[in-house]
């Protein structure tokens, strides 16, 4: 088997190695922050798979994140399911919901698609409130202390240790990154890009673009669900605020900043934005203003995001 785009593959490995080393170099706080960034970057990668590569801009991805969060969290909270299994349930939750929503939403395009996904996400959010006797509604549920550790293949894993948390997040990030490398740089990825660039021509070439888009949508939803499940189980809290519109906007922002349609863009975007908000919130209470300004500035001058701009100017293989 040959690896396409070897340079990018090498870069991915270097980035993963650097991330691994980071835990020995960075201060405690940055390791904690990086753990969160990695989890949210997984979410952004799932989103980027759809928005960046396939060209479908969804405004409702919070529902898939929340689906993973709730599927995993509720299975653990009520079913007492062990964490690894709950985690898998979370991924399935995100994927299945995405498949069903995709069946409907993909009948629409561009602006309609954005609004339809927004509406479905709003319904999902309201459902978490409506069934609050199960979900805990906005107040949420705190997972029991017993769920803070688990054993996998005889290995005891303590989720309260910062190093363990970091390495779990990094491992899953690496798996998703390599998986998405295989998807996006291979023949399937070229199909996704073909749909993005010219859906009619792709259709004429005899491809069923609906199926291609549905596949992209489902993968994207499953990855978002993975991120949600990981977040919920790792932080021991599930609540409806993760299903809010704001979460959908955040992931869009991360992707836009980093560079839609670049493999490492979501990581860069999530890192930059998370740290920026983190720093700014100490200085001013109006840090959302910066988010607003950035959205506009990026749109006006860097519609391709950080890595997208670098790719277009200097490094064509960075995709």
């Amino acid at each position: 088997m040959t690896i396409p785009n070897k340079k990018l593959f090498a870069l991915c490995l270097v980035v993963l190695a650097l991330l691994f080393m980071a835990q020995f170099v960075l201060s405690n706080y940055l390791v904690l922050a990086l753990t969160r960034i990695l989890i949210l970057a997984i979410f952004a990668m799932g989103y980027n798979m759809l928005m960046g590569y396939t060209g479908l801009l969804s405004l409702g991805h919070a529902m898939f994140f929340a689906a993973g969060l709730y599927a995993a969290g509720l299975a653990n909270y009520y079913g007492g399911v062990s964490l690894p299994i709950a985690f898998v349930i979370g991924i399935l939750g995100g994927g299945v919901l995405a498949f069903v929503i995709g069946l409907l939403a993909l009948r629409t395009q561009t602006v309609s698609f954005m609004i339809v996904t927004l509406m479905f996400a709003q319904v999902a959010y309201l459902l978490t409130l409506y069934f609050s006797n199960v979900t805990g509604g906005d107040q949420g549920l705190t997972l029991p202390t017993a769920s803070r550790s688990f054993s996998l293949f005889g290995l005891a894993v303590d989720l309260t240790s910062p190093m363990v948390r970091f390495n779990i997040a990094l491992t899953l990030f690496a798996v998703v990154l390599i998986g998405l490398f295989a998807v996006t740089q291979g023949p399937l990825g070229r199909l996704f890009v073909a749909v993005r660039e010219n859906i009619n021509r792709t259709e004429m070439l005899g491809f069923d673009t609906y199926r291609i888009r549905l596949l992209a949508f489902t993968i994207s939803g499953a990855i978002s669900g993975l991120a949600g499940a990981l977040y919920g189980l790792m932080f021991g809290f599930i609540g409806s605020s993760f299903a809010e519109f704001r979460s959908s906007i955040e992931v869009l922002l991360f992707t836009l900043v980093g560079g839609p349609g670049t493999l490492l863009g979501p990581l860069v975007g999530t890192g930059v934005m998370t740290m920026l908000i983190d720093r700014l919130s100490g200085m001013t209470s109006a840090y959302l203003i910066v988010v607003g300004v950035l959205l506009i500035v990026i749109n006006l001058w860097f519609p391709k995001g950080i890595l997208g701009t670098i790719r277009d100017r200097w490094v064509p293989w960075l995709k």
Partner: peptide
């Protein structure tokens, strides 16, 4: 909460009001 613990290295944290924020922060 993480920022307080790891970066500011505070001795204690106080002042949360809204119960959903508390529910999320308490386990951490």
């Amino acid at each position: 909460m993480e920022k307080f613990a790891a970066e500011h290295k505070v001795d204690a944290v106080f002042g949360h009001l809204f119960s959903h924020v508390v529910a999320a922060t308490a386990p951490r």
